[in-house]
Design a protein around this nucleic acid. Structure first.
Length: 288
RNA sequence: GCGUCGGUGGCGGAGUGGUCAAUCGCACGACACUGUAAAUGUCGCGCCUACGGGCUACGUUGGUUCGAAUCCAACCCGGCGCA
Protein backbone atom coordinates (compact mmCIF):
# COMPACT_ATOMS: atom_id res chain seq x y z
CA UNK A 1 0.00 0.00 0.00
CA UNK A 2 1.45 3.31 -1.10
CA UNK A 3 1.29 6.12 1.38
CA UNK A 4 1.88 9.79 0.67
CA UNK A 5 1.76 12.92 2.76
CA UNK A 6 0.47 16.18 1.24
CA UNK A 7 1.21 19.53 2.85
CA UNK A 8 -0.73 22.48 1.52
CA UNK A 9 -1.11 26.11 2.57
CA UNK A 10 -0.84 29.67 1.36
CA UNK A 11 2.41 31.48 0.72
CA UNK A 12 4.49 32.31 3.80
CA UNK A 13 2.59 29.86 5.98
CA UNK A 14 5.70 27.84 6.82
CA UNK A 15 5.08 24.78 4.66
CA UNK A 16 8.71 24.12 3.75
CA UNK A 17 10.00 24.01 7.30
CA UNK A 18 7.12 21.82 8.37
CA UNK A 19 7.82 19.44 5.52
CA UNK A 20 11.46 19.07 6.49
CA UNK A 21 10.38 18.35 10.06
CA UNK A 22 8.00 15.64 8.90
CA UNK A 23 10.59 14.17 6.56
CA UNK A 24 13.16 13.89 9.33
CA UNK A 25 10.84 12.18 11.77
CA UNK A 26 9.08 9.95 9.26
CA UNK A 27 11.89 9.04 6.91
CA UNK A 28 10.56 10.98 3.98
CA UNK A 29 11.63 12.72 0.79
CA UNK A 30 10.11 15.92 -0.43
CA UNK A 31 8.43 16.57 -3.77
CA UNK A 32 7.94 20.26 -4.38
CA UNK A 33 4.50 21.23 -5.70
CA UNK A 34 5.45 24.65 -6.95
CA UNK A 35 5.14 25.92 -10.49
CA UNK A 36 7.91 28.52 -10.06
CA UNK A 37 10.49 26.73 -7.96
CA UNK A 38 11.08 24.37 -10.85
CA UNK A 39 13.05 27.16 -12.53
CA UNK A 40 16.71 27.81 -11.93
CA UNK A 41 17.49 31.39 -11.00
CA UNK A 42 14.16 32.10 -9.32
CA UNK A 43 15.45 31.76 -5.78
CA UNK A 44 14.65 34.75 -3.62
CA UNK A 45 11.34 35.55 -5.27
CA UNK A 46 10.05 32.01 -4.89
CA UNK A 47 11.43 31.69 -1.37
CA UNK A 48 13.22 28.55 -2.46
CA UNK A 49 14.51 26.46 0.41
CA UNK A 50 18.26 26.67 0.96
CA UNK A 51 20.66 23.79 1.20
CA UNK A 52 21.11 24.22 4.95
CA UNK A 53 17.38 24.42 5.52
CA UNK A 54 16.93 21.06 3.81
CA UNK A 55 18.84 19.37 6.63
CA UNK A 56 19.91 16.62 4.31
CA UNK A 57 16.37 15.74 3.22
CA UNK A 58 16.23 15.12 -0.55
CA UNK A 59 14.05 17.66 -2.41
CA UNK A 60 12.67 16.89 -5.86
CA UNK A 61 11.28 19.05 -8.68
CA UNK A 62 13.28 22.13 -7.75
CA UNK A 63 15.67 23.72 -10.26
CA UNK A 64 14.79 21.32 -13.05
CA UNK A 65 14.18 23.84 -15.85
CA UNK A 66 15.62 27.02 -17.29
CA UNK A 67 13.38 30.08 -16.95
CA UNK A 68 12.77 30.31 -20.64
CA UNK A 69 11.53 26.72 -20.76
CA UNK A 70 7.93 25.81 -20.04
CA UNK A 71 6.88 23.51 -17.25
CA UNK A 72 3.23 22.59 -17.04
CA UNK A 73 0.75 20.74 -14.86
CA UNK A 74 1.05 17.81 -17.24
CA UNK A 75 4.79 17.65 -16.69
CA UNK A 76 4.21 17.80 -12.99
CA UNK A 77 1.71 14.96 -12.96
CA UNK A 78 4.02 12.62 -14.78
CA UNK A 79 7.13 13.65 -12.81
CA UNK A 80 5.36 13.43 -9.47
CA UNK A 81 3.74 10.11 -10.29
CA UNK A 82 7.11 8.55 -11.11
CA UNK A 83 8.75 10.05 -8.06
CA UNK A 84 6.05 8.80 -5.71
CA UNK A 85 6.50 5.31 -7.02
CA UNK A 86 10.25 5.45 -6.91
CA UNK A 87 10.49 6.92 -3.42
CA UNK A 88 7.96 4.43 -2.12
CA UNK A 89 9.83 1.46 -3.50
CA UNK A 90 12.91 2.69 -1.67
CA UNK A 91 10.85 2.39 1.48
CA UNK A 92 10.57 6.10 2.11
CA UNK A 93 7.57 8.38 2.50
CA UNK A 94 6.86 10.76 -0.39
CA UNK A 95 5.92 14.18 0.98
CA UNK A 96 4.27 16.58 -1.47
CA UNK A 97 4.58 20.19 -0.39
CA UNK A 98 3.71 23.41 -2.12
CA UNK A 99 1.44 26.26 -2.92
CA UNK A 100 0.50 25.41 -6.49
CA UNK A 101 -2.77 23.88 -5.57
CA UNK A 102 -3.77 23.31 -9.16
CA UNK A 103 -0.95 20.79 -9.35
CA UNK A 104 -2.47 18.91 -6.44
CA UNK A 105 -5.77 18.94 -8.30
CA UNK A 106 -4.16 17.67 -11.47
CA UNK A 107 -2.56 14.82 -9.55
CA UNK A 108 -5.73 14.05 -7.59
CA UNK A 109 -8.23 14.20 -10.40
CA UNK A 110 -6.00 13.48 -13.34
CA UNK A 111 -5.64 15.38 -16.58
CA UNK A 112 -6.71 14.35 -20.05
CA UNK A 113 -3.89 12.37 -21.62
CA UNK A 114 -2.97 12.40 -25.26
CA UNK A 115 -3.41 16.15 -25.58
CA UNK A 116 0.02 17.60 -25.08
CA UNK A 117 0.73 21.29 -25.41
CA UNK A 118 0.93 22.28 -29.06
CA UNK A 119 2.83 25.56 -29.32
CA UNK A 120 2.30 25.94 -33.06
CA UNK A 121 -1.45 25.54 -32.71
CA UNK A 122 -1.54 27.91 -29.76
CA UNK A 123 0.33 30.57 -31.69
CA UNK A 124 -2.13 30.24 -34.52
CA UNK A 125 -5.21 30.37 -32.31
CA UNK A 126 -3.77 33.35 -30.48
CA UNK A 127 -4.38 35.40 -33.61
CA UNK A 128 -8.13 34.81 -33.54
CA UNK A 129 -10.62 37.04 -31.79
CA UNK A 130 -12.06 35.85 -28.52
CA UNK A 131 -15.53 35.59 -30.08
CA UNK A 132 -14.18 33.37 -32.82
CA UNK A 133 -12.39 31.13 -30.33
CA UNK A 134 -15.56 30.73 -28.34
CA UNK A 135 -17.60 30.02 -31.46
CA UNK A 136 -15.19 27.28 -32.42
CA UNK A 137 -15.41 25.61 -29.04
CA UNK A 138 -19.21 25.77 -29.16
CA UNK A 139 -19.20 24.17 -32.57
CA UNK A 140 -16.82 21.36 -31.63
CA UNK A 141 -17.84 20.64 -28.05
CA UNK A 142 -20.93 22.40 -26.74
CA UNK A 143 -20.73 20.66 -23.39
CA UNK A 144 -17.26 21.98 -22.71
CA UNK A 145 -18.17 25.41 -24.06
CA UNK A 146 -20.91 25.71 -21.48
CA UNK A 147 -18.36 25.39 -18.67
CA UNK A 148 -15.83 27.93 -19.92
CA UNK A 149 -16.04 31.66 -19.48
CA UNK A 150 -16.42 32.96 -23.07
CA UNK A 151 -13.87 35.70 -22.32
CA UNK A 152 -11.16 33.42 -21.04
CA UNK A 153 -8.93 33.04 -24.08
CA UNK A 154 -6.45 30.81 -22.36
CA UNK A 155 -9.08 28.24 -21.40
CA UNK A 156 -10.68 28.43 -24.85
CA UNK A 157 -7.39 27.84 -26.60
CA UNK A 158 -6.58 24.88 -24.41
CA UNK A 159 -10.04 23.43 -25.07
CA UNK A 160 -9.43 23.69 -28.81
CA UNK A 161 -6.04 22.09 -28.33
CA UNK A 162 -7.63 19.10 -26.60
CA UNK A 163 -10.39 18.95 -29.20
CA UNK A 164 -7.80 18.83 -31.96
CA UNK A 165 -6.16 15.72 -30.45
CA UNK A 166 -9.09 13.94 -28.82
CA UNK A 167 -12.10 15.21 -30.73
CA UNK A 168 -13.70 16.59 -27.58
CA UNK A 169 -12.84 17.46 -23.99
CA UNK A 170 -13.45 14.48 -21.73
CA UNK A 171 -15.96 15.13 -18.94
CA UNK A 172 -14.26 15.74 -15.69
CA UNK A 173 -15.10 12.57 -13.80
CA UNK A 174 -13.73 10.33 -16.50
CA UNK A 175 -10.83 12.44 -17.46
CA UNK A 176 -8.51 9.55 -18.03
CA UNK A 177 -9.88 6.06 -18.16
CA UNK A 178 -6.51 4.55 -18.87
CA UNK A 179 -4.79 6.08 -15.89
CA UNK A 180 -7.08 6.08 -12.87
CA UNK A 181 -6.68 9.11 -10.71
CA UNK A 182 -3.65 8.31 -8.69
CA UNK A 183 -4.77 9.56 -5.33
CA UNK A 184 -8.20 8.01 -5.50
CA UNK A 185 -6.83 4.63 -6.31
CA UNK A 186 -7.70 2.22 -3.50
CA UNK A 187 -4.06 1.27 -3.07
CA UNK A 188 -2.93 4.80 -2.28
CA UNK A 189 -3.42 6.35 1.11
CA UNK A 190 -3.10 10.13 1.32
CA UNK A 191 -2.67 12.09 4.48
CA UNK A 192 -3.15 15.85 4.50
CA UNK A 193 -1.57 18.55 6.58
CA UNK A 194 -3.17 21.90 5.88
CA UNK A 195 -1.49 25.00 7.24
CA UNK A 196 -3.90 27.90 7.07
CA UNK A 197 -2.98 30.79 9.38
CA UNK A 198 -5.55 33.50 10.12
CA UNK A 199 -5.54 36.58 7.88
CA UNK A 200 -3.83 39.08 10.15
CA UNK A 201 -1.03 36.70 10.99
CA UNK A 202 -0.47 35.75 7.38
CA UNK A 203 -0.32 39.36 6.24
CA UNK A 204 2.27 40.13 8.85
CA UNK A 205 4.33 37.13 7.79
CA UNK A 206 4.09 38.06 4.13
CA UNK A 207 5.32 41.60 4.77
CA UNK A 208 8.17 40.50 7.01
CA UNK A 209 9.27 37.99 4.43
CA UNK A 210 9.13 40.55 1.65
CA UNK A 211 11.35 42.95 3.54
CA UNK A 212 13.90 40.20 4.02
CA UNK A 213 13.70 39.20 0.38
CA UNK A 214 14.43 42.78 -0.69
CA UNK A 215 17.41 42.86 1.64
CA UNK A 216 18.67 39.62 0.18
CA UNK A 217 18.75 41.12 -3.30
CA UNK A 218 15.33 40.40 -4.78
CA UNK A 219 15.48 43.38 -7.13
CA UNK A 220 18.85 42.28 -8.43
CA UNK A 221 17.50 38.79 -9.04
CA UNK A 222 14.53 40.10 -11.01
CA UNK A 223 16.85 42.32 -13.00
CA UNK A 224 18.95 39.33 -14.00
CA UNK A 225 15.94 37.27 -14.99
CA UNK A 226 14.58 40.21 -16.97
CA UNK A 227 17.79 40.52 -18.96
CA UNK A 228 17.64 36.84 -19.74
CA UNK A 229 14.00 36.44 -20.76
CA UNK A 230 12.49 39.86 -21.48
CA UNK A 231 9.22 41.53 -20.52
CA UNK A 232 6.63 39.04 -21.70
CA UNK A 233 8.10 36.05 -19.93
CA UNK A 234 8.83 38.06 -16.81
CA UNK A 235 5.17 39.08 -16.62
CA UNK A 236 4.15 35.51 -17.03
CA UNK A 237 6.21 34.55 -13.99
CA UNK A 238 3.95 36.79 -11.95
CA UNK A 239 4.02 38.35 -8.49
CA UNK A 240 7.41 39.76 -7.53
CA UNK A 241 8.81 39.18 -11.00
CA UNK A 242 6.01 41.11 -12.65
CA UNK A 243 5.70 43.91 -10.09
CA UNK A 244 9.43 44.54 -9.82
CA UNK A 245 9.80 44.21 -13.56
CA UNK A 246 7.31 47.03 -14.04
CA UNK A 247 9.11 49.02 -11.38
CA UNK A 248 12.46 48.59 -13.13
CA UNK A 249 10.96 49.68 -16.43
CA UNK A 250 9.50 52.80 -14.86
CA UNK A 251 12.81 53.62 -13.22
CA UNK A 252 14.59 53.25 -16.52
CA UNK A 253 12.18 55.69 -18.16
CA UNK A 254 12.02 58.23 -15.35
CA UNK A 255 15.16 57.89 -13.25
CA UNK A 256 14.07 60.77 -11.05
CA UNK A 257 10.68 59.27 -10.21
CA UNK A 258 10.35 58.03 -6.67
CA UNK A 259 8.76 54.66 -7.19
CA UNK A 260 10.69 52.94 -4.43
CA UNK A 261 8.22 53.97 -1.75
CA UNK A 262 5.39 52.39 -3.70
CA UNK A 263 7.17 49.11 -4.34
CA UNK A 264 6.69 47.40 -1.01
CA UNK A 265 2.96 48.19 -0.73
CA UNK A 266 2.42 47.01 -4.30
CA UNK A 267 4.26 43.75 -3.66
CA UNK A 268 2.47 43.22 -0.41
CA UNK A 269 -0.91 43.69 -2.06
CA UNK A 270 -0.15 41.24 -4.85
CA UNK A 271 1.10 38.58 -2.49
CA UNK A 272 -1.95 39.04 -0.33
CA UNK A 273 -4.19 38.51 -3.34
CA UNK A 274 -2.27 35.36 -4.12
CA UNK A 275 -2.59 34.10 -0.56
CA UNK A 276 -6.33 34.73 -0.61
CA UNK A 277 -6.60 32.80 -3.81
CA UNK A 278 -4.78 29.91 -2.19
CA UNK A 279 -6.95 30.10 0.89
CA UNK A 280 -10.08 29.79 -1.18
CA UNK A 281 -8.73 26.58 -2.70
CA UNK A 282 -8.10 25.25 0.79
CA UNK A 283 -11.73 25.95 1.70
CA UNK A 284 -12.80 23.76 -1.16
CA UNK A 285 -10.33 21.06 -0.17
CA UNK A 286 -12.28 20.62 3.04
CA UNK A 287 -15.48 20.10 1.06
CA UNK A 288 -14.20 17.17 -0.89
C1' G B 1 0.96 90.15 0.08
C1' C B 2 0.29 89.92 -5.38
C1' G B 3 -0.05 86.51 -9.54
C1' U B 4 -1.09 81.74 -11.21
C1' C B 5 -2.70 76.61 -11.45
C1' G B 6 -5.57 73.35 -8.81
C1' G B 7 -9.12 71.02 -4.86
C1' U B 8 -13.90 64.86 -7.72
C1' G B 9 -15.20 58.07 -4.57
C1' G B 10 -9.88 54.39 -0.02
C1' C B 11 -5.86 56.20 -3.71
C1' G B 12 -4.37 57.88 -8.76
C1' G B 13 -7.01 60.27 -12.33
C1' A B 14 -11.26 61.50 -16.35
C1' G B 15 -15.45 64.54 -16.92
C1' U B 16 -15.77 71.15 -17.86
C1' G B 17 -24.01 73.33 -18.36
C1' G B 18 -28.48 68.40 -18.95
C1' U B 19 -28.86 61.19 -20.47
C1' C B 20 -23.29 61.71 -14.01
C1' A B 21 -23.55 57.85 -8.47
C1' A B 22 -19.75 60.01 -11.98
C1' U B 23 -15.15 56.69 -17.98
C1' C B 24 -10.65 54.30 -16.51
C1' G B 25 -6.58 52.24 -13.54
C1' C B 26 -5.13 50.58 -8.61
C1' A B 27 -6.56 48.77 -3.92
C1' C B 28 -10.49 46.01 -1.58
C1' G B 29 -14.28 41.84 -1.53
C1' A B 30 -16.47 37.45 -3.83
C1' C B 31 -15.98 33.78 -7.55
C1' A B 32 -14.53 30.58 -11.88
C1' C B 33 -10.75 27.87 -14.01
C1' U B 34 -9.38 20.00 -17.40
C1' G B 35 -1.36 20.76 -19.47
C1' U B 36 1.17 28.84 -19.24
C1' A B 37 -2.20 28.20 -12.66
C1' A B 38 2.55 33.25 -8.92
C1' A B 39 -1.06 32.44 -14.95
C1' U B 40 -5.99 33.48 -17.13
C1' G B 41 -11.01 35.15 -16.66
C1' U B 42 -15.88 36.93 -14.31
C1' C B 43 -18.81 39.76 -10.82
C1' G B 44 -19.29 43.51 -6.88
C1' C B 45 -17.28 47.95 -4.85
C1' G B 46 -21.53 55.94 -1.79
C1' C B 47 -26.10 54.80 1.37
C1' C B 48 -31.02 52.36 1.40
C1' U B 49 -33.90 48.86 -1.38
C1' A B 50 -40.17 45.37 -1.20
C1' C B 51 -34.32 45.03 -6.83
C1' G B 52 -38.96 48.55 -10.03
C1' G B 53 -36.10 52.14 -7.92
C1' G B 54 -35.15 55.83 -3.91
C1' C B 55 -31.64 59.15 -1.36
C1' U B 56 -27.11 62.11 -0.32
C1' A B 57 -22.58 63.36 -3.23
C1' C B 58 -17.63 66.38 -6.91
C1' G B 59 -13.26 71.92 -0.76
C1' U B 60 -17.12 75.63 1.92
C1' U B 61 -21.00 79.19 1.44
C1' G B 62 -23.97 81.93 -1.63
C1' G B 63 -25.47 83.22 -6.68
C1' U B 64 -26.73 82.68 -12.22
C1' U B 65 -29.89 79.02 -14.85
C1' C B 66 -35.78 75.30 -16.35
C1' G B 67 -31.16 72.53 -15.06
C1' A B 68 -24.23 73.01 -12.26
C1' A B 69 -19.04 68.53 -10.55
C1' U B 70 -19.15 71.76 -14.82
C1' C B 71 -20.55 79.24 -15.14
C1' C B 72 -19.94 83.61 -11.34
C1' A B 73 -18.49 85.60 -6.31
C1' A B 74 -16.43 85.29 -1.57
C1' C B 75 -13.96 82.30 1.73
C1' C B 76 -10.85 77.90 3.23
C1' C B 77 -6.82 74.59 1.72
C1' G B 78 -2.48 72.93 -1.51
C1' G B 79 1.46 73.48 -5.59
C1' C B 80 4.27 76.95 -8.32
C1' G B 81 6.13 82.07 -9.65
C1' C B 82 7.10 87.10 -8.03
C1' A B 83 7.95 89.75 -3.81
Amino acid sequence: MTKILCIAGPTASGKSARAVGEALTRNGEIISVDSRQVYRGLDIGTEKITCEEMHGVPHHLIDIREVNEIYSAGDFVSDATHLIEEISTRGKLPILVGGTHFYFDALLKGLPTGADANPALRAELEKLSTEELYARVVRADARRASEIDPHNRRRLIRALEIIKSLGSVPPRNLVDARRPQLLWTPGVHTEWIVIDPPKEELRTRIDARLRKALERGLIEEVHKVHEKVGDARLNELGLEYRVIGEFLNLEAKHPSGCFASKLLPALSAKLWQYARHQKSWLRKLGER
